[in-house]
């Protein structure tokens, strides 16, 4: 099994606060890796450093043996690393179709065809419809992003990331605030995705994570305190104490 994404003692401090401290993670190809941890454990900060939104205080990030620690965001995306956000980050005044279409356009090229209509990129349009179908938003293609229900906006969040045709997809609590039905649909979509690509999932819903992940890393107070299969994590004493134990109380 090859490792696609790994970090080497990755750290991020804000002033004196160590939001992420010497975090090491190994993500295997076409596997579903989950990162769990209590609120404020540093999961989102970890994502932000991984994807170039924050610069790392120390440590390295490798994607397919390539050091991407200091790369600008758009170049990291170009390598095939796409992400979603915990707080919806959409092109809010554009239609659902355009939200996905523009992501596909950036991936597939044509941005400098300055005298053609944006609707003329046939390949991009076809791929956009396919992506919308995948995340269940085909019927709402003409709606504006700000007219969607919260659950649909979460789906669109995933749709935009998928339109970038990632090699590795980083999801930040994709099902937060979704209804049970929507959660199930997204969960099965995530599972299905691992047939083709690698997925990293930050999630609060421990049961969901336990049921669909191949491997789990547990974060607590900025550190990764355990890494292993769901079974191993379930048995890990440290994890029980720091995280799962808390929930039982």
């Amino acid at each position: 099994m090859s490792i696609v994404l790994k970090t080497d003692n990755l750290s991020k401090s804000f002033g004196g606060v160590k939001a992420v401290h010497n975090a090491n993670i190994n993500v295997e190809e076409r596997k579903l890796k989950a990162v769990i941890g209590p609120n404020g454990a540093g999961k989102t900060t970890f994502y932000n450093v991984l994807t170039g939104y924050f610069s790392a205080t120390s440590g390295e990030v490798y994607f397919m043996d390539r050091n991407i620690t200091k790369m600008p965001i758009h170049e990291i995306v170009k390598l095939g690393i796409c992400r979603t956000f915990q707080i919806n980050t959409l092109f809010i005044g554009a239609t659902v179709f355009e939200n996905v279409r523009i992501a596909s356009q950036i991936k597939n090229g044509g941005s400098y065809k300055i005298l053609s209509s944006r609707r003329s990129l046939k390949n991009v349009n076809d791929k956009t419809w396919a992506t919308l179908d995948k995340v269940g938003l085909k019927d709402k293609a003409k709606s504006f992003a700000n007219e969607l229900s919260y659950g649909d906006q979460r789906s669109l969040e995933v749709g935009i990331a998928l339109a970038g045709e990632p090699k590795i997809l980083l999801l930040d609590e994709p099902t937060a605030g979704m209804s049970d039905g929507e959660t199930k649909r997204i969960a099965s979509l995530i599972r299905e995705l691992t047939n083709d690509i690698t997925v990293v999932l930050v999630e609060h819903d421990v049961e969901l994570v336990m049921s669909i992940s191949d491997s789990i890393s547990v974060m607590n107070q900025g550190e990764i305190i355990a890494e292993g299969t769901p079974e191993e994590i379930r048995k890990n004493e440290l994890v029980k104490k720091a995280y799962l134990g808390e929930r039982k109380n």
């Binding site: 939104y53 995306v77 092109f91 044509g110 990331a161």
Partner: peptide, 20 residues
């Protein structure tokens, strides 16, 4: 054109534009 669409994406959400 597709170029204008990119500009609009920056206007709508600069952060997301970078992440696509």
């Amino acid at each position: 054109s597709p170029f204008g669409a990119v500009l609009e994406s920056i206007r709508e959400n600069e952060k997301r534009a970078a992440f696509i």
